[in-house]
Every structure is written in structure tokens, then in C-alpha cells.
Design a protein around this nucleic acid. Structure first.
Length: 760
RNA sequence: GGGCGGGUGGUGAAAUGGUAGACACGCCAGCCUUAGGAGCUGGUGCCGCAAGGCAUGGAGGUUCGAGUCCUCUCCCGCCCACCA
């Protein structure tokens, strides 16, 4: 027999499958559609182990679903706009476009080396004008509906480089490039009214099938809080506008502490902040005058940007009061009838509107035109897409605008409304906009007339299962849910929620248990691992490392991967044992079985094997669906060991084993399938079925407990009666010794499992 | 400070309230050998010669029976943070 040459096997099948083997039709006779989505990657340069974890492991589920008869859409694409491309341009003089597309080409090859069953005919790239035309179109739909508005928002500003900085460009409040302290600066930005959907985003979480922790994270992010606004009249002072009705509204969740108020605190940006020193506020409940302060701890855009200071009840209020020699009023709580007179019930959310303007080059151009006379006008649909113009100088402008503002020819246009002189918006869109609708495009990626046709979307949406990283639980997941709801209201999609089921995967750490990073020197290069042990081994290793359905973190272990390789070597050698049909009479029982069941139940070896086979088919299928690949693989290992111990294995059993292995190790399974003359492709073979009755052994082990301690066990036929079990147990010497001379007060019987005695 | 996850052998981990540690790594012993970091067999939670006892971060509780349920507490990780 040939030895297991993983690279020959993998290359051979990857070549045979090519790019079209997993091309998905919108309809397949007799097969139900299943849309299985994984978050698409940013084309950062090359695949790291995290990519393998994100794409190769879910591929197990995609392949399994296909074998169970589902018509599975498992697409791939690239979230290709973003800052790193622009940084590469600035630092190394590369063109962001070239940089991005070269990365994509390289990563595509790596994805193929994974043996992932992506439908490459549906590949999408968000920086492709054919894609971002529709990002712009959808953005304008939201604009027309009044969901997009302009507002002054704080940005990070580097005074030396005279540029806006992204959060990730700010390290310890200093500019990453020059080390200058970053300032906060207010700039006009485009905002999307996600807060208008806060209530629906909250309530529709109930229908989402995902772990409770994801729902909780979203609820907390939305941060609904029931509270009250209370108006404090301001004692007139010369500096404030004259006239009656000058007052400060505070927001509180504890209006009942109104009697304990000893000061008012304003956010530094509050309109009265400048005059705070001279102001006195009047508590409406008791007409007491209290001082007004400005305090850093009051958040400007939460509540009303002003709080009532109750040092007796609030830790931060107390701290502030102590520092400023404000008296602490040990209060009495106000009765409901009293505070309700002054407190206006309100609901606030922590969720902020979504700032989508970016002063960046490498993003989707915002399709708006500014005219002196007509203000902002949308770019007419016939002029979409607004193409990103090629430029040579990616250095940001000194006034905080995107480098695009330097492309004068591109920026200067006629106003679509009045035909007068006008200028394009030169900011680009946050890349979270691009990724808020990408899964819609996968259903109809080549459509030139629509972002996706109703019919195609109808075939696949909503997404049946969405797998991704925990870091996207709040931002991306919430943005895309919002976007979908907005499109639903516009009548553009048919579902209120984009995803039916969502799961977060864990994290792969370096072998030192630390997060993988170049600076720590613990980065694993998947290409190198694939070269040494093969893609199948790396796939199974990652799936085996820990439960995929939990957000734990698992260190990469060199020894562990060698163990998986050993497993596949053993699988390879199993073919030596294959015996052609008809089945041989059963072989003599092994030691293990003597210990187990054959003495008691009188079962033959063949029956015992059947039980294990049926148990394994059941377990592997159930575990794959639950994304518990680690225990599925363990079951396959157990089955392979059982086959190994046989002198000659049945051909049909080996076929079943290969079918079970196929989703995990697609190449070796296909090779062995082919080499042993099974028909067609193992990946087109149906998933093996099991007989529930045959998953149960004929004999069971009954455990004996006396006063809560385990004192022994015995074999009995399955279904043994309560009376028989007690009689057998009491007769057993180890139990009898504990029971003699005592009175049995209580007996418990758990069918096919346990008897328990309680004595005096 | 808030929220959310976790604490089980030397390690990654298993375990519908019913024999804790499946499977795998590592380690130990032996076999084989073309002397390889290969393969095979057996062993491997802790204490103990044994009988037996003790073990799922710690302390209580419920139960015939708790890793699993309840209360308190300590520690670790992640996310958000002067969010009233």
C-alpha cells in the first residue's frame, strides 16, 4: 500500500474540485435551501490561523448539511475597504487598489488550500464598483427616508499631522504616527438614526436563535433605561438670558432621592456650563437652593447632560461632593405621590446614532453633492456608482477632510437640482456600512439592475446560520440588524431579521497561551503547517482543540497536531483491513468485550460493532449540528480504533466511516473512497442513517449506591425490572456487606442505570 | 466602576442530577526496529503495601445521589467604561 502523502492527495483533489465543484444553484430538486454564512475576511495580506478557525472549521457543517440533502450556500468574499490599505499606500507608496487586490488573489489561493467548499462563483468584494454602487444606492434609500442626517460629532484630531485619526490610530491618547497628544475636535459628520430602531432591535432579539450571552450583550449595548427628567428652575442671574422659564433638566433613574439633592452637575459642554459658578438651582420638591457645578463625570450625550447630585445615594456624587465641600444630605426617600409631581417619565438609551463619515480615501464615496443654494442633494440613481477617483497623494488635507478633497476635477460637479456650482461630499462611508448588507449580495452577486433580486433573496433569506467572532456581537451584528430593518420598512427585503441563528466562535492563542501577535513571536503560519502535516490534519486539529460553540480560547499545541496526524495515518492504514463482501463470520471477541457485555448479554461481536457504528453515526451528526466538533472527532477516533482491532473489516462499514470522516477531512476521505472503488464522490454520498434501536447495547451496567456512596456494579440485560435489580444488587457481596444488620429505609431505582439504598 | 463568560489531572478537554476525567497531548515501562521526533502493547488524578479514603477554585445548602441546582466568597479572561 502507498503511504499517506498528504500533499499529493490534497493537490489532486483540489485540482479536481476546482473552483466550480461547490457552485450552488438557487434551486435543487428535492433539496431544501440552507444559507450558511461566516463573516467575510478583511484582505490583510495572508491567512492566519484565525482565518482557518473561522472558515475551515465551519466548512465541516457546510459539507455535512450537503450530505444530509440540503442545498447549501456557503459563500465567501472580502470586506475590502479600510484603513490598512490606505496606510500601506502612505507608508510604502503602494496603491490601495493594487495592494488590496493582490492580497485577495493570494488569500483566495490559500482558501482553496483549505479544502473549504466555498461557492467561488458568488465571490464578492466590497471595493468593487459593481458592489459599492449598491452600497451607495441603499445608503440613499435610507437618506430619502430621513434616516441620515448631519451632526457635529467629536473626532480624534492630531494637531501636528492636521488629520482626523481613527480610534485604532490612537495609542494611549497619542497619535500613532507622530506621538503628539490627540485632541478632541468637533466636526460635522453624517449620522444614521439607528436609535430610531432601538426598541425594535431590542424586542426582536426574542425571535433570534442564539446564545443568551449574545442577546444580553446587545441589550446592554442598546442600554435601555427607564428614568425621569426633573426640571430645576434657575435662580435668575445677570449672565443668563432674561425672562422666565430658565431651567435645567436633569435625568435620573432615582427620582425618589429628590430630597437628597445637594447640588446640580452639568456636562462640560452643557449650554450653561460657562455660567455654572454663578448659578443656583431650585429643588422643585422643597424649594431649596442648591449650587450648580460642572463635572467631568457627567456624560454629554446621555440623558440630558445634567444630573442632580445626591451624595447619599450615588458613589460618584459622593466623591464629587467631598472634593468640593458640598454637604451630604442624609435623606429620606420621597414618597411616590411627591416625586411624581415633578418627575417626567422618560426612556433613554445608551445606543448612539451611528457616525458613518470617515475622512478617508479607501472607502465607499458618500453619494451626496453639496450646493450652496440647494444644500445636500443625492446623486441621481443614473449616475451611480460614484467612482472612487484614482489619486496619487493619500496624505490627508490639513482641514480634516479626506484626501479625496484634493481630487478637484472629481469633486467639482453641477448641482443635480439647480445645475449650479456644487461639490461632492469627499468623506467616505464607514466600512461597517459595506458589511451591513453583504449577505444579501451573495444571493445575487452579479445583478447589474438591483442590489439583489426579490426572487433570489427569497430563495435564501433569512440567513439560516451565521458564524462569527465575538468581537462583532455588538457593532456589526447590531448595524446589520438595523440596516435590514430599515430595508424591510422600505419594502426592499421580506424579513424583519436578517439571521435566524447566530453563534460566536472561540479564539486560537499562541502555544504560550497568549494572543497570537508578531511582537510576541508566537504566530503560527498555517501554510507551513499545511506543508508539513496537510490541510486535513490542520482542519481536524482546529476542530478538535475545544468546543466551537463556546467563546473560549485555545492555545495552539504542536503535540496535539501530531496526534491528529497520527489519527489520519491510522485511518489510511485501515484500508488494509478491508475485506470484500460478503461479510465474514464474526471474529473472536476481544478482551475489551469480555469485560463489557458479551458474557452477560450473550451478544456476538458483530452486534457489538453494529451498536458502536450506529452510536457513532448518531453522535457525529448531532455534534456537528451543535458545532461540538471536538466530541464528534473523538467518536470517530473510537470507531477507528474498533475497526483497527478487527482482523478483517467489512467493506460497507469502511464506507460508512469514510462518509462520517468526509466533512472533517475532505481530501483523505475522497482519496480512500476512490482508491477502494466506491462509487462517485464521497461528498456526494448521502449521510449514513442509523437505527435508534441499534444505538443501545443489549446489556447495561447497573451501579449500586449505599447511603450515597458507590459500592459496586453489575451487568444486567437492558430493561431489567426494578425487583430483579434490587434482588441482584442485594445479593452482591460488596453490597450485602454494607446492608447486613441494617434496615433498608428507602430504595431508589433508575432504569438501566442505578440502584440506591438508604439504611438506618 | 459596570456587564458577560470561565475556574475539572502535568496540558487541551469529556460528562440528559446517576461509576468524574471520554478523546487527545505529555509522561512512564516494555516490545519491535531500517536507530527516525516512526510503529505497537500496557500504565498514568491524589494519598495508601493494601483494604480503603480524598478529589471538579473555596465555604455552606438542597438531594438517596451535585462538576451539574441554590446562597455566599475568591481568582482569571473578555467587552464596555465617570451611562446617573
Amino acid at each position: 500500500m502507498k503511504s499517506y502523502n498528504h500533499s499529493a492527495v490534497e493537490k489532486k483533489w483540489q485540482k479536481k474540485w476546482g473552483k466550480s465543484a461547490y457552485k450552488t444553484q438557487d434551486k435543487k430538486k428535492g433539496a431544501e435551501n440552507f444559507y450558511f454564512l461566516t463573516e467575510f475576511p478583511y484582505p490583510s495580506g495572508n491567512l492566519h490561523v484565525g482565518h482557518w478557525y473561522a472558515f475551515a472549521v465551519p466548512d465541516i457543517l457546510a459539507r455535512y448539511l450537503r450530505m444530509t440533502g440540503k442545498n447549501v450556500l456557503y459563500p465567501i468574499g472580502f470586506d475590502a475597504f479600510g484603513l490598512p490599505a490606505e496606510n500601506a499606500a502612505l507608508q510604502h507608496g503602494l496603491n490601495p487598489h493594487t495592494w488590496t487586490y493582490e492580497n485577495i488573489a493570494y488569500m483566495r489561493k490559500q482558501f482553496i488550500s483549505m479544502g473549504a467548499s466555498f461557492d467561488w462563483s458568488r465571490e464578492i468584494t466590497t471595493c468593487d464598483p459593481a458592489y459599492y454602487k449598491w452600497t451607495q444606492w441603499l445608503f440613499l434609500k435610507l437618506y430619502e427616508r430621513g434616516l441620515v442626517y448631519r451632526k457635529k460629532t467629536e473626532v480624534n484630531w492630531c494637531p501636528k499631522d492636521k488629520t482626523v485619526l481613527a480610534n485604532e490610530q490612537v495609542k494611549d491618547e497619542k497619535c500613532e504616527r507622530c506621538g503628539t497628544s490627540v485632541e478632541k475636535r468637533k466636526m460635522e459628520q453624517w449620522n444614521i438614526k439607528i436609535t430610531e430602531y432601538a426598541e425594535r432591535l431590542l424586542s426582536d432579539l426574542d425571535v433570534l436563535d442564539c446564545p443568551e450571552e449574545i442577546k444580553i450583550a446587545q441589550r446592554n449595548w442598546i442600554g435601555k433605561s427607564e428614568g425621569a427628567e426633573i426640571e430645576f428652575k434657575i435662580h435668575p442671574t445677570p449672565t443668563l438670558p432674561k425672562g422666565k422659564g430658565v431651567s435645567v433638566k436633569v435625568f435620573t433613574t432615582r427620582p425618589d432621592t429628590l430630597f437628597g439633592v445637594s447640588f446640580i452637575a452639568l456636562a462640560p459642554s452643557h449650554p450653561f456650563a460657562k455660567d455654572a459658578k454663578n448659578l443656583r438651582a431650585i429643588n422643585p420638591a422643597n424649594n431649596e437652593e442648591v449650587p450648580v457645578f460642572v463635572a467631568d463625570y457627567v456624560v454629554e450625550d446621555y440623558g440630558t447632560g445634567a444630573v442632580m447630585g445626591v451624595p447619599a445615594h450615588d458613589e460618584r456624587d459622593r466623591e464629587f461632593a467631598l472634593k468640593n465641600n458640598i454637604p451630604v444630605k442624609n435623606s429620606e426617600l420621597a414618597p411616590k405621590e411627591v416625586f411624581e409631581k415633578f418627575a417626567q417619565k422618560t426612556t433613554t438609551y445608551k445606543l448612539h446614532d451611528w457616525v458613518v463619515s470617515r475622512q478617508r480615501y479607501w472607502g465607499t464615496p458618500i453619494p451626496l453633492i453639496h450646493c450652496e443654494k440647494c444644500e445636500y442633494q443625492p446623486v441621481p440613481e443614473k449616475d451611480l456608482p460614484v467612482l472612487l477617483p484614482p489619486i496619487k497623494d493619500y496624505v490627508p488635507t490639513g482641514d480634516g477632510r479626506s484626501p479625496l478633497a484634493k481630487a478637484r476635477k472629481w469633486a467639482e460637479v453641477k448641482c443635480p437640482a439647480c445645475g449650479g456650482k456644487a461639490e461632492r461630499e469627499t468623506d467616505t462611508l464607514d466600512t461597517f456600512v459595506d458589511s451591513s448588507w453583504y449577505f444579501l449580495r451573495y444571493t445575487d452577486p452579479k445583478n447589474k439592475k438591483e442590489f439583489a433580486s426579490r426572487k433570489k433573496m427569497g430563495a435564501w433569506l433569512p440567513v439560516d446560520f451565521y458564524s462569527g467572532g465575538a468581537e462583532h456581537t455588538t457593532m456589526h451584528l447590531l448595524y446589520s440588524r438595523f440596516w435590514h430593518k430599515a430595508l424591510f420598512d422600505l419594502g426592499l427585503v421580506s424579513d424583519k431579521e436578517p439571521y435566524v441563528r447566530r453563534m460566536n466562535r472561540g479564539l486560537i492563542l499562541g502555544s504560550d497561551g497568549q494572543k497570537m501577535s508578531k511582537s510576541r513571536g508566537n504566530v503560527i503560519d498555517p501554510d507551513e503547517e499545511v506543508k508539513q502535516v496537510g490541510a486535513d490534519t490542520v482542519r481536524i486539529y482546529l476542530a478538535f482543540i475545544g468546543p466551537y460553540n463556546e467563546t473560549g480560547s485555545y492555545p495552539w499545541d504542536k503535540g496535539g497536531i501530531a496526534g491528529i496526524r497520527r489519527f489520519l495515518e491510522r485511518v489510511w492504514r485501515l484500508q488494509d483491513k478491508i475485506h470484500p463482501p460478503p461479510r465474514k463470520p464474526s471474529a473472536p471477541p476481544s478482551k475489551g468485550e469480555l469485560r463489557n457485555s458479551s458474557l452477560e448479554g450473550g451478544v456476538s461481536r458483530r452486534e457489538t460493532e453494529d451498536v458502536l457504528l450506529h452510536q457513532t453515526i448518531k453522535k457525529v451528526g448531532e455534534d456537528i449540528i451543535a458545532m461540538k466538533f471536538n466530541t464528534a472527532i473523538s467518536a470517530l477516533m473510537v470507531l477507528s480504533k474498533a475497526f483497527e482491532s478487527e482482523k478483517a473489516g467489512a467493506r460497507e462499514d469502511f464506507a460508512i466511516f469514510l462518509q462520517l470522516l468526509a466533512p472533517f477531512a475532505p481530501h483523505i476521505a475522497e482519496e480512500l473512497w476512490h482508491e477502494n472503488n466506491f462509487k462517485g464522490s464521497v461528498h456526494k454520498a448521502p449521510w449514513p442513517t442509523y437505527d435508534e434501536a441499534k444505538t443501545r447495547e443489549a446489556s447495561v451496567t447497573i451501579v449500586i449506591q449505599v447511603n450515597g456512596k458507590i459500592r459496586g456494579s453489575f451487568f444486567a440485560p437492558r430493561g431489567v425490572t426494578e425487583a430483579d435489580a434490587f434482588a441482584r444488587a442485594e445479593a452482591l457481596p460488596e453490597a450485602a456487606a454494607r446492608l447486613s444488620g441494617k434496615q433498608i429505609k428507602k430504595r431508589f431505582f433508575v432504569k438501566d442505570r442505578l440502584v440506591s439504598f438508604v439504611t438506618t
